[in-house]
Computed example of a mutant assay.
Amino acid sequence: MVKIGNIELPEFPLLLAPMEDVSDPPFRKLCKMHGADLMYSEFISSEGLIRDAIKSRKKLDIFDYERPIGIQIFGGDEEAMSMSARIVETVQPDLVDINFGCPVKKVVCKGAGAGVLKDIDLMVRLTKAVVSSTHLPVTVKTRLGWDTESINIDEVAERLQETGIKALTIHARTRSQMYKGEADWQHISRIKNNPNIEIPIFGNGDVASVEKAWMYKQKYNCDGIMIGRGAIGYPWIFNEIKHFLKTGEKLAQPSLEDRLLAVRQHAEWSVEWKGERPGLVEMRQHYNNYFKGISHFKALKSRFLQALTLSELYELIKEAKDQLTELEV
């Protein structure tokens, strides 16, 4: 069993990463159904929460069936982070997570996300501001450092643990790498094997198959794995990894019928959460991922993208099932 404060997770838990414009309630519901043990909201701007920005507030929506669920915040100002932590606490998530890893320029330029990796003292102050403002467990997600010349994750891990955080997730890339190149999990192993580190250490980066998950678990000794891009359009990855770790056998890949059902469920929950038109517009980014590997889907793709009512989508799903059933996924 892995514990984050008073939250009990199974041995070697699988976490769904917080991903902007992806990790919303409909997507999280699908991942939970397929085996995710702990999930996080999309990252939320501390300044946006304080301004009462509608988009930021909407990201606070959480539901009991998602638990345990964490809400992730980011920012570069201590007072704003403290205030946003108190706002987050009002919706009663199970934990608060701090984003010190987002490499996107518009976030970094504000001195937030991975931008804080250049100033560990500021990172510590921001973390202390959050920890002291909430009774909830506080966790952090970060990267190895700004670039290969300034990998500082060893110092970061020890100093953040001293602030009182209850777990640390490390994306095994630097900010300069963005999402390119190969994630270097050796750094995660070194942190985990540091005798001074007592909190759970979760690894993140390049978890795109059951074999890789097994290798990361065996080789790098982390307490669990966070999955991001590997789950987009493929929520089955959680149960597939669990089954492989338990039995050494691979589950059959989802059938076309499985994929069409996932699209239908995702779309219905998206419509329920956002309304019909905006919910289906939101779905447009997901279709390619759900039908990845189905060569003849391209002929139907434009029509899926044009569907703006559930009835239209239902008709397309039926048509896709009829046309593509004979094709291998």
Results as ranks from 00 to 15, higher is better:
Arg259Pro: 06
Arg259Asn: 11
Arg259Asp: 01
Leu260Phe: 11
Leu260Ile: 14
Leu260Trp: 09
Leu260Met: 12
Leu260Asp: 10
Leu261Gly: 05
Leu261Ser: 10
Leu261His: 10
Leu261Glu: 14
Ala262Arg: 01
Ala262Ser: 13
Ala262Val: 00
Ala262Ile: 01
Val263Met: 11
Val263Arg: 00
Val263Asn: 00
Val263Ser: 00
Val263Trp: 01
Arg264Ala: 12
Arg264Glu: 15
Gln265Lys: 13
Gln265Ser: 10
Gln265Thr: 15
Gln265Val: 13
His266Cys: 00
His266Ala: 03
His266Tyr: 05
Ala267Arg: 07
Ala267Gln: 03
Ala267Trp: 02
Glu268Ala: 11
Glu268Ile: 05
Trp269Met: 15
Trp269Glu: 15
Ser270Met: 14
Ser270Asn: 14
Ser270Ile: 06
Val271Cys: 06
Val271Pro: 04
Val271Tyr: 05
Val271Ala: 08
Glu272Arg: 15
Glu272Met: 14
Glu272Pro: 02
Trp273Ser: 09
Trp273Glu: 09
Lys274Tyr: 09
Gly275Tyr: 11
Glu276Gly: 11
Glu276Asp: 09
Glu276Leu: 14
Arg277Lys: 15
Pro278Asn: 12
Pro278Tyr: 13
Pro278Trp: 07
Pro278Met: 07
Gly279Glu: 05
Gly279Phe: 03
Gly279Lys: 00
Leu280Thr: 09
Leu280Ile: 09
Leu280Phe: 07
Val281Trp: 00
Val281Cys: 02
Glu282Arg: 13
Glu282Trp: 11
Glu282Pro: 00
Glu282Met: 09
Glu282Thr: 06
Met283Cys: 12
Met283Arg: 06
Arg284Gln: 13
Arg284Asp: 08
Arg284Trp: 04
Arg284Met: 10
Gln285Asp: 06
His286Phe: 14
His286Leu: 08
His286Ile: 04
His286Trp: 13
Tyr287Cys: 03
Tyr287Asp: 02
Tyr287Phe: 15
Asn288Cys: 04
Asn288Gly: 11
Asn289Trp: 12
Asn289Ala: 15
Asn289Gly: 08
Asn289Cys: 06
Tyr290Glu: 05
Tyr290Val: 06
Phe291Cys: 00
Lys292Trp: 01
Lys292Leu: 14
Lys292Thr: 03
Lys292Arg: 15
Gly293Arg: 08
Gly293Leu: 10
Gly293Ser: 13
Gly293Tyr: 03
Ile294Glu: 00
Ile294Pro: 01
Ser295Val: 12
Ser295Ile: 10
Ser295Pro: 02
Ser295Ala: 14
His296Phe: 03
His296Met: 04
His296Arg: 13
His296Ala: 05
Phe297Cys: 05
Phe297Leu: 08
Lys298Tyr: 07
Lys298Cys: 03
Lys298Arg: 13
